[in-house]
Design a binder for these strands. Structure first.
Length: 498
RNA sequence: GCGCCCGUGGCGCAAUUGGAUAGCGCAUCGGUCUUCGGAACCGAGGGUUGCAGGUUCGAAUCCUGCCGGGCGUACCA
């Protein structure tokens, strides 16, 4: 958990220069959020200002080489050389265009900042915020009294704010140790690496050079600060000492695969050869523009808003459906609210988990909040239907479960459903073998579809014989329990009425 | 430049890791329908799996080369 990184340097810098004491007094997290965004904005503009001339020069250079490539193509002899030259020219033109686009976007940001008087004044008063922020971060890490004190007062409210989201998502931890916990363990790790001859000085930084990698894994910056890799090494050592794990899974965006490849290589060389270390990488969430999705303006705001939207939309559908009941509405306002919570969260989680873990996907609220087709709602609906039958028939499933011999599969729909039920264990194995939750979602959707067919074709309470009725009730119960168990493994709840 | 990943009906995705006629959802079209809960069911159309070779009894999957896209690449995480 990132309780120690640059984001705290940003907040500390913001607090020292821009805090609104009264606002902080009233709502600390809101004010700290504002400060974070403010500092972020200053850093972004200054990045744009420093990148602009670089981009301009790059456009100039690429324009030259593009011209040269076109001239070369004009005089190239026909055949293979011409094709090659044309391709080079095309590539050069593409590069020039994308450089121009980049230049324009830096320029637009600079101009927007220039039009904002207050922002311009701040930029003038605070040149190079990024360096200042890094300095605050370094001071925090070095034990500076002021920064430590600020960090200690900020941390609880920041942590509590994040907890709100975890609570909404029902995410809990068995152990929780932040980056800060490992800080004091970093120096001994580096000493060990140095005495093992693995870590050496290079250009002022402490580096581990590894076979098969062009660049080293840097474990201590020139300015003395530790990095991501340092904490990862200390964390691994601590975990081995404390829990003797057989395997450690790192569930992290695939863009960090090189980092983990280096980390694992270093760790094995260090002597930890018995642990199964795995980077469970996943694809990037993309915005509408196909670029990685970011909430530059804040941190958890985007997610919070999405959760609200999911619940709100589910509430609309629940209400609409309940109002349309033949005998009038059945649900209280509280029930509707609870159902909307469960269904909305489920839709979001399912949208994420039903995707192939390794592929990118586009952040699209419309799709993520859909309640039709291959969605959690479909499974939850099956579960609720079973409870509808049990309620209407006054059935106690516990009684059924005493006599499993009552199960008889005669019609094709019953047989198809029964076969799917038997495959549950197999689906779990599939999901587990390569850490792919979508194997499980796919199974559950298949099961629920078969149940729908069964439900349509096979009357349960009005079955022809008591034996058939009992058998079908049993199938219903098994289906409901399988769906409930499967969804629970995905962190998704069910409701008896919806 | 080097490295990693991706390309599957209009759109979004699967494919038991090399097996049988490539599946599903949305969308489209057509049916069911005074329901054990229609947030449903049944059916139809739509594919040369980016292109070209190769390996194999068998390729969406493995190899090679193109085309197109994404990401990473020395002190961010």
């Amino acid at each position: 958990m990132g309780d120690w990184g640059t984001q705290f340097g940003m907040i500390i810098y913001g607090y020292k220069h821009f805090v609104d004491a009264a606002a902080y007094e009233r709502q600390p997290v809101v004010e700290l959020g504002r400060l974070y965004r403010l500092v972020r904005q200053l850093m972004d503009v200054q990045e744009a200002q420093s990148q602009l001339p670089v981009a301009v020069a790059k456009v100039e250079q690429l324009t030259q080489s593009s011209l040269a490539a076109r001239e070369a193509a004009a005089v190239a002899p026909a055949g293979e050389p011409l094709k090659r030259a044309e391709k080079t020219a095309r590539l050069a033109a593409d590069q020039r265009r994308s450089a121009e686009a980049e230049r324009d976007s830096w320029q637009a940001r600079c101009e927007a900042a220039a039009r904002d008087g207050e922002l311009s004044a701040r930029l003038a008063a605070h040149p190079d915020v990024e360096t200042s922020v890094l300095r605050e971060t370094a001071k925090l890490h070095a034990g500076d009294a002021d920064n430590r004190r600020l960090w200690q007062t900020f941390l609880p409210s920041c942590r509590a704010d994040i907890q709100r989201i975890y609570d909404r998502l029902h995410v809990t931890f068995d152990h929780e140790l932040g980056e800060s916990f490992y800080h004091e363990r970093c120096a001994p790790v580096l000493e060990a690496l140095q005495s093992a001859g693995m870590a050496v000085d290079s250009q002022g930084a402490l580096c581990v050079f590894l076979d098969g990698f062009e660049t080293p894994m840097i474990v201590r910056k020139r300015d003395g600060a530790y990095l991501y890799a340092t904490t990862d090494l200390a964390t691994l050592q601590y975990r081995v000492e404390t829990w003797q794990p057989a395997a450690i899974l790192y569930v992290v965006d695939f863009r960090q695969s090189e980092h983990f490849a280096k980390l694992f290589a270093a760790v094995r060389q260090w002597g930890y050869t018995q642990i199964d270390l795995r980077h469970i990488s996943f694809g990037t969430v993309l915005g509408k523009d196909g670029r990685p999705y970011k909430t530059r303006s804040g941190d958890t705001v985007g997610l919070d808003g999405l959760l609200d939207e999911a619940v709100h939309k589910a509430h609309e559908v629940v209400s609409q459906n309940d109002d349309g009941k033949p005998d009038g509405p059945e649900l209280s306002a509280e029930q509707r609210q609870h159902i909307a919570q469960v269904i909305g969260m489920a839709a979001l989680k399912y949208a994420d988990l039903s995707q192939n873990r390794t592929s990118d996907y586009e952040y699209s609220p419309e799709k993520m909040l859909s309640l039709q087709g291959n969605t959690a709602t479909y499974m939850q609906y099956s579960f609720a239907r079973v409870h509808g039958i049990f309620a209407k028939g006054n059935i106690d499933p516990q009684v059924l479960r005493q006599r499993p011999e009552c199960l008889h599969l005669t019609s094709p729909a019953e047989r198809s459903l029964g076969l799917a039920l038997l495959r549950f264990a197999e689906a779990l194995d599939d999901a587990l073998s390569d850490y792919r939750p979508n194997q499980l979602t796919q199974y559950l959707f298949d099961l629920a579809k078969r149940f729908s067919t069964f439900f349509e074709e096979c009357p349960v309470l009005r079955a022809d014989t008591p034996a058939e009725r009992d058998s079908r009730l049993m199938l219903c119960d098994l289906t409901a329990r399988t769906i409930q168990q499967g969804l629970e493994l995905l962190g998704i709840q069910v409701v008896q009425k919806m």
